[in-house]
């Protein structure tokens, strides 16, 4: 199960950072930063819940 969770984290993170880069290039810097924060949160929060 841990491997699947890590795989999901990796895929969603790649998607979120990709979207963040798109927003940065599209001149929506605030949106890009917000999405990057969400991407970081997706990596951190599992350690307090599913990967505890």
């Amino acid at each position: 199960m841990t491997i699947i969770i890590w795989l999901v984290i990796l895929i969603v993170n790649a998607y979120t950072i990709g979207f963040s880069i798109t927003l940065w290039k599209g001149d929506s810097k605030v949106g890009a930063i917000a999405m990057f924060v969400v991407a970081v949160a997706i990596v951190i929060t599992p350690f307090f819940s599913v990967l505890r």
Partner: peptide, 20 residues
Amino acid sequence: FKIKEFEYAIPALATLVVFV
């Protein structure tokens, strides 16, 4: 956060909901 195409943020937010 001035994201016009906010639908693209849904998968990331949904994942965050699951973990939190």
